[in-house]
C-alpha cells in the first residue's frame, strides 16, 4: 500500500512572528523555516505504517517554491522513500493546494493520504477535507489514533466533546492531530541518505490547474495588545482585585 503525505514549509514553530508595518503580511526574510509540526506527525504516522509492514512506500509531497525542497529533504531524512515538489511561486491557498494534491493522487494512486490537521501559519484547517471532497473519499480529521484493518481504516478523532471513532473505506484521507504520535528526529546517517533519495520537481503550470487565489488578502495586522498587567503579592490582594475592582467574582 502506497501512502502519500502532504507537507508544508512554514515559519518555525518556535519563532515569534513579526507583522510587517505596511500591513502586507508577516516577515519571512531571514526567518527560520521548518516543516509544519502537524505534517511531521502525519509523516511519522506514515513511516510507522511502513515499519509495521502495512505500507510499501511513503511519498512526501509539497507545493510551493523551490525552497520547499529543503522541507522535502527533511521528510526524506525522517524516513520517506521519495519526494515530489509541485513548484510554483504563486501564492497558494488551501483550495489550490487540494487541487494540486488531487492531481498527484490521481497519478500515484495511494491508498492513504496523510496531512496535518492545519498549518500553523494560516491556521486554515481545510486542505485535507477539501482533498477528500475533490476525490470523493472518506475523511478522518483530527486523528489521535489509527488502525488499519484490511480495506478499512479505523480513525479515532479528537472532537470537542471527546473522542469519536469512525471507520473509513480505503482509499481515505486522514489529518493528524497532536496526540497521534511523537515525530522522530532524523539521525545523521539518515540525513545523509536523504540526499540520495529521489525528489521529482513538477511545475504547477504543467498541470493545467486553476490555482489562482480565491481570497484577496487586504491587510495583515497585529492583534490588539492587552493592557499591561500587574503583579500581586498575596491571594488576598488578588481576590480583592477580582472582587472589588473587576467585579468578576
Amino acid at each position: 500500500m502506497k501512502v502519500l503525505v502532504a507537507i508544508k514549509r512554514v515559519i518555525d514553530y518556535h519563532t515569534k512572528i513579526r507583522v510587517k508595518a505596511d500591513g502586507s503580511g508577516v516577515e519571512t526574510r531571514n526567518v527560520k523555516m521548518a516543516m509544519n509540526p502537524f505534517d511531521e506527525i502525519a509523516l511519522e504516522a506514515a513511516i510507522r505504517l511502513k515499519e509495521a509492514g502495512q505500507a510499501s512506500e511513503v511519498i512526501v509531497v509539497s507545493c510551493g517554491t523551490s525552497e520547499c525542497q529543503e522541507t522535502l529533504r527533511a521528510g526524506l531524512a525522517m524516513g520517506a522513500d521519495r519526494a515530489i515538489l509541485i513548484e510554483t511561486s504563486e501564492e497558494l491557498q488551501p483550495l489550490a493546494v487540494a487541487k494540486l494534491l488531487n492531481a498527484v493522487v490521481n497519478k500515484e494512486s495511494p491508498q492513504l493520504v496523510f496531512l496535518g490537521k492545519q498549518a500553523i501559519d494560516d491556521d486554515a484547517n481545510q486542505t485535507g477535507q477539501m482533498l477528500a471532497g475533490l476525490l470523493n473519499w472518506a475523511q478522518g480529521t483530527f486523528a489521535s489514533n489509527i488502525i488499519i484493518n484490511n480495506d478499512k481504516i479505523e480513525v479515532e478523532r479528537e472532537v470537542d466533546g471527546g473522542l469519536e471513532k469512525v471507520s473509513l473505506k480505503l482509499p481515505a484521507i486522514v489529518t493528524a492531530d497532536l496526540r497521534l504520535n511523537e515525530p522522530r528526529f532524523p539521525s545523521l546517517p539518515n540525513i545523509m541518505k536523504a540526499k540520495q533519495k529521489p525528489l521529482e520537481v513538477i511545475s504547477a503550470s504543467s498541470l493545467n490547474i486553476d490555482i489562482k487565489p480565491r481570497l484577496t488578502v487586504l491587510k495583515i495586522e497585529s492583534p490588539p495588545i492587552r493592557k499591561q498587567g500587574v503583579k500581586v503579592n498575596t491571594i488576598n490582594e488578588l481576590f480583592n482585585k477580582l472582587h472589588v475592582t473587576e467585579k468578576v467574582l
Binding site: I11, V26, I120, D121, D123, T216, V217, K219, P223
Partner: peptide, 12 residues
C-alpha cells in the same frame, strides 16, 4: 492567523 499573532482581512 499564526495562532492569533496576526489578524488577516480577506475579501472573497
Amino acid at each position: 492567523i499564526y495562532a492569533g499573532n496576526a489578524i488577516a482581512t480577506v475579501q472573497s
